[in-house]
Amino acid sequence: MRKRVRQELADLLELPLDISLDLPRVVVVGDLGVLISNHRGLIQYSPEEIVIGVGRGQISISGENLEIEEVSKEDMAVRGVIKSVEMNT
C-alpha cells in the first residue's frame, strides 16, 4: 500500500522512479558488461554467476569469466561475457 502511494506520488511529481522508489538502475553494455547503480551488496560471486542484492530482490548475472571491475557503495561494474541478466523479485 505504501509502495503504491509512493509510486503515484512519484508519477505525479514526474520524479525518476529509481531514486524515489529506491530501485536499482541496470545498464547492459552489449555482452561486455553490466553497470548496476543503487545496489545493496554482493550475495554470491563466481566466474559463472554473480548475484547482487537490490532494493526489491536480486539481480543475477550469468556468463563466463565474470569479474567485478569496480565496486563502491552505490555502483558496481561487472565485466566478462554476459549471457543473461535476470531480475528476481
Binding site: 551488496g41 550475495i43 554470491q44 560471486y45 566466474p47 565496486v71 563502491s72
Partner: peptide
C-alpha cells in the same frame, strides 16, 4: 564467504576493484 568481506568493505566505504575469483 568472501562476498561478505566485500560487502563489509563496501559498507565501510572502502572502494575495491578488479575482483576476480
Amino acid at each position: 564467504n568472501p562476498e561478505r568481506l566485500i560487502n563489509l568493505c563496501l559498507s565501510s566505504g572502502f572502494p575495491i576493484w578488479d575482483i576476480v575469483r
